[in-house]
Amino acid sequence: MTTSPDLASLVASVTVREADGSSWYDLSSHPVSVDAIGGAIADRVRDAGITAVISWWTPDEAVLAHVVASALGVPRSSAELELGLITLSPELNANNGRRVLLVATDFDFNKPQEPLRVLLEGRGQALVATASFSEPEGIRFTGLD
């Protein structure tokens, strides 16, 4: 499993820092780092019985979810908010979506956690863990013991 200092340096390798001090993540800039990050996330949640990985639909989020889902051998789905309704595509069913991991480069107003938790619970599914990029530790996990 990748150690925290390694995760921090991997996340730093996909972080773009602007002159004004702002930063954002570019997962297209370093594929080897993205594969390693996805593998480290998968290693950390492997014992949680994850049956699907979801993300909000943006290119970077979809790439991250794809890499993590591939490492876990589970399906991936993307959430999208349109006209006040959240949809998942492809849909998760009771078999492949019972225990869900939500991944994100970051959670913010445009990519919140709680609406997805409510949507999944309403379908008899559970958001059991989240993983997002974080400084200084590299990846922040919630929902894991």
Rank of each mutant, 00 (worst) to 15 (best):
V100W: 05
P90Y: 03
R140D: 08
P115G: 10
V128G: 01
S55I: 01
N96V: 15
Q113G: 03
A40C: 09
P90T: 02
V53F: 08
W56I: 02
E61M: 06
L101I: 13
T87F: 02
E82R: 15
D106A: 15
L127W: 09
V74A: 04
A104C: 06
S13G: 01
T15Y: 08
R99N: 09
L102A: 10
S23R: 10
L83E: 13
D47Y: 04
R117T: 13
I86C: 05
E135W: 09
D60Q: 15
L101T: 14
L88Q: 10
V32T: 14
Q125R: 13
P136I: 03
A104P: 12
A40S: 14
V67Q: 12
V67S: 10
G138F: 05
L102E: 00
I54F: 07
R123G: 07
I139F: 01
F141E: 00
T142N: 09
A69Q: 00
I41V: 15
T58E: 11
T105C: 05
N93C: 03
S89T: 15
S13M: 04
A62R: 08
A69L: 05
V34N: 00
G124Y: 11
E114C: 00
S78L: 15
L102N: 04
G97A: 12
L127N: 06
I50V: 15
A12G: 08
L64V: 14
R44P: 01
G138L: 07
E80V: 14
T58I: 05
L85G: 00
D35V: 14
L27G: 06
G39F: 10
G84K: 02
L88A: 12
R117V: 07
V14L: 00
V53P: 14
V11W: 04
Y25W: 08
P112M: 01
S77T: 12
T105S: 10
A42C: 09
A71W: 02
I54Q: 03
H66N: 14
E137L: 12
S134G: 02
R98E: 15
L83M: 13
F133L: 00
D106G: 13
D20C: 07
Q125G: 11
V14I: 13
L119T: 04
S28L: 09
S78V: 14
L85W: 05
V34C: 03
E82N: 12
S70F: 12
S33M: 01
R76N: 09
R140T: 04
A71F: 08
D26C: 06
R98F: 11
T51W: 07
L102R: 02
F109L: 11
